[in-house]
Write a protein that binds this DNA or RNA. Sequence first.
DNA 1: GCCGAGCTTTACGTTAACGTAAAGTGCTTG
DNA 2: CAAGCACTTTACGTTAACGTAAAGCTCGGC
Lengths: 150, 150
Amino acid sequence: MSKRTSAPQEPANGGLSRQRRTYTIGELARMFEVTPRTIRFYEQEGLLAPERRGQARIYHEKDRVRLKLTLRGKRLGFSLAEIREVVEMYDAMPDGNARQLKRLLEILADKRANLERQLEDIRLMHRELDDVESRAREVLASLETESTGR
Amino acid sequence: MSKRTSAPQEPANGGLSRQRRTYTIGELARMFEVTPRTIRFYEQEGLLAPERRGQARIYHEKDRVRLKLTLRGKRLGFSLAEIREVVEMYDAMPDGNARQLKRLLEILADKRANLERQLEDIRLMHRELDDVESRAREVLASLETESTGR
DNA sequence: GCCGAGCTTTACGTTAACGTAAAGTGCTTG
DNA sequence: CAAGCACTTTACGTTAACGTAAAGCTCGGC
């Protein structure tokens, strides 16, 4: 939170990277500005399942998207467990039974409600920030008038 | 996160509560659906400073607003430390020096940027949820056709 | 006078989400 | 072939944000 640098989040595609299709853990880490440790942790928590070439991990486009969605979920305040819940059901969808699917719809509605509340919170917070800022500017201005006006 | 119940957050004002003006910790806790422990913790972290009548804490309207803003900040993913940073500067504003004020403006800009990113995240997440949901409904529909259509 | 409800302090416990250090594997480059 | 670099596993450490348990005030009601 409160990073000074604006994270790219979606790397500037050189217009050819659809060739490569695979990434190392370090590449992904740099892309999304996280550490390799974080990515391994997400795998351990069942959020990623990269191909294994012997001991080495090989990440494909699918994994990159997964990671992107995971990080987005995190920024929105979802826990890894919550994110995994959706991701797992999404994977199990083709042969998911009705009960599972209805559960998934429940979860989605829940997350939607969460987003709605966040939107409202953001609106309110925005106004608060406006207030604080204008007050700060006022005081700042009065300080400068004081020192220049003598 | 993922509460089924829609938190009131702003209690239905009976049209007379401006008389009381003070609250116990338990009342506040019920209002905002947190535990007293949480409220004491926020005080310990410098986010609240209720009046003390001997040993007892007495919360006024000001404290209630503080708590409300704190919880809102939390829902938006700010840490207590970040929230305190703003709150403290806000309190120190009347006699804040220029350097402090400029720092405050920086922080505010930072938080604003954060909100912007969250808005974008929410938009994207919303579309994802739409996708997942429509897919789920499709599968669900096909399942029902299968069983009814025999 | 004592009982229960609600408050208080003190202090140790818990969980999520990683950080960090140690020690080993594997490739490619001089 | 040795060195270096990026990767790997294992495992213990850390931080934030509380939870929980124990033990003690305080006050209104019976």
